[in-house]
Simulated assay, not measured.
Amino acid sequence: MRTVILKINAKKPQISGIRRAASIIRRGNLVAFPTETVYGLGADALNAKAVKKIFVAKGRPADNPLIVHVSDKESVNDLAGDIPQLAEKLISRFWPGPLTIVLKKSKTVPKITTGGLDTVAIRMPKNKIAQALIREAGTPIAAPSANFFGRPSPTLAKHVLDDLDGRISAIIDGGQTRIGIESTVIDLTRKTPMLLRPGRVTLEELQSAIGRVDVHPILKGKKSALVHRSPGMKYKHYSPDAHVILIEGQSALVHKKILKLVQQFGKQGKKVGVITIRGDKYTKNTRRVRTDSEFAANLFKIFRECDSKKIDVILVQGIPRKGIGLGIMNRLSKAARTKIMA
């Protein structure tokens, strides 16, 4: 299969390119497209055969649910069987945007789209290309991140091409995504809403909007028998080829630990990269991120850059688990093979 690249302006999407991509979706094939979070791999969410192609192209386990993307609030009524008042509050405040809500699914949604669950995860992206594609396709679009399963999520069209060239029909190149980590996911099928995956819409913002929100035990590092109603919960994710070591603790102690590890791995002949919030340059492959938003926007991009440079070990300084920091640390915890408390 030849994967076609469609260059489309992110601010003023050209309708000709959008229509070409939408026709591919309507024919039951796959198109990767940008959202404000990461690039998604899209198929007609209501076409079971088309959705199956997503799992095959990504090498994704069939029990890992997909997020269904819509272009208007009214579409939720077709996809969900029971829409609580809290959903209306969240939709009004955060849509379009990086928030996914989990509801009881309607009979319209195939089980393959929901990973076999009786719930459906829905969001309305803010990205203009994504919105135009969904509208022109005339159907909700199921779209996980457009990477091979377990790899760092793609924030550039090049990342998608690196992973899925020849496995999908087309990629819409709309430039770098803005947020850089996947959407926040909240489960509204419970008596008390539960945060399943943290992201740009923060726990604090959710609590401000609707009151109490429980946090899934997995996000606290605990085991749980609760059903995994969101992607990004059940399996190892976001991992580069390099060995990621996450180091948490007081900044000065983390600094000393990084210096020690850089020296230790250097003696072993290993190539080391460092991601830090400090100004220190530990190696020539040190990347400093000054804010949490900058960290989120560039995390997966840095992982992929390290792989392209054949970095053996990536040392990452942890940050406080508050605001978008909770989402960043969730991704780092999933990606890290080793975790150290300095």
Score class of each variant (00 low, 15 high):
His255Leu: 03
Asp63Phe: 02
Glu182Thr: 03
Ala121Ser: 12
Leu6Glu: 08
Lys309Tyr: 13
Asn9Val: 03
Leu156Tyr: 13
Thr35Met: 01
Ile25Gln: 02
Thr338Phe: 00
Val31Phe: 12
Leu299His: 02
Ser230Thr: 06
Lys222His: 06
Arg19Glu: 01
Arg93Pro: 00
Ala22Trp: 00
Arg178Glu: 12
Ile83Leu: 10
Arg278Gly: 06
Leu253Val: 13
Arg331Ala: 11
Gln317Tyr: 05
Val244Ser: 06
Gly266Val: 07
Asp307Glu: 04
Ser308Glu: 15
Ile328Ser: 06
Asp44Met: 07
Val38Phe: 01
Pro98Lys: 07
Gly59Cys: 08
His69Gly: 05
Ala87Thr: 10
Lys284Phe: 02
Asn64Met: 01
Ile24Tyr: 02
Ala45Glu: 11
Ala225Ser: 15
Gly116Leu: 11
Ile18Thr: 06
Pro154His: 14
Leu259Thr: 13
Val38Ser: 05
Leu90Lys: 11
Asn330Pro: 07
Arg278Thr: 14
Gly138Glu: 01
Asp187His: 06
Ala296Pro: 09
Phe55Val: 01
Pro13Asp: 11
Lys58Trp: 03
Asp118Ile: 09
Lys270Asn: 14
Ala32Arg: 07
Phe300Glu: 11
Lys111Asn: 12
Ile101Phe: 04
Asp307Asn: 09
Ala335Met: 10
Thr155Trp: 02
His237Cys: 07
His228Val: 05
Asn127Glu: 12
Ser183Ala: 10
Ala170Asp: 07
Thr192Lys: 08
Asp187Phe: 01
Leu196Gly: 07
Leu196Pro: 02
Met1Val: 10
Asn47Lys: 03
Ile277Ala: 14
Asn285Tyr: 15
Asp312Gly: 11
Ile340Lys: 12
Ala142Lys: 03
Leu259Arg: 15
Lys12Leu: 13
Leu246Asn: 14
Glu204Thr: 08
Ile258Ala: 00
Ser251Asn: 06
Ser183Glu: 10
Ala242Val: 02
Ala48Met: 11
Asp173Ala: 08
Lys220Ser: 06
Val213Gly: 08
Val70Asn: 07
Gln176Pro: 06
Leu99His: 09
Gly174Lys: 08
Pro217Leu: 08
Gly28Asp: 15
Ala142Gln: 08
Leu133Ser: 02
Ile340Met: 14
Gly325Pro: 09
Asp241Val: 05
Thr283Lys: 04
Val38Leu: 01
Gly150Lys: 12
Ile24Ser: 03
Lys301Arg: 04
Gly273Glu: 13
Leu164Pro: 04
Arg287Pro: 01
Arg288Lys: 14
Gln14Trp: 09
Ser251Arg: 10
Leu46Cys: 13
Thr108Lys: 15
Ser208Tyr: 15
Asp280Lys: 15
Tyr238Gln: 01
Pro320Glu: 02
Pro13Phe: 03
Lys89Leu: 13
Ile245Ala: 04
Gly211Tyr: 13
Leu259Ala: 06
Gln131Gly: 08
Ser106Cys: 05
Thr177His: 06
Phe55Gln: 01
Lys7Trp: 12
Arg178Thr: 11
Val38Tyr: 04
Ile258Asp: 03
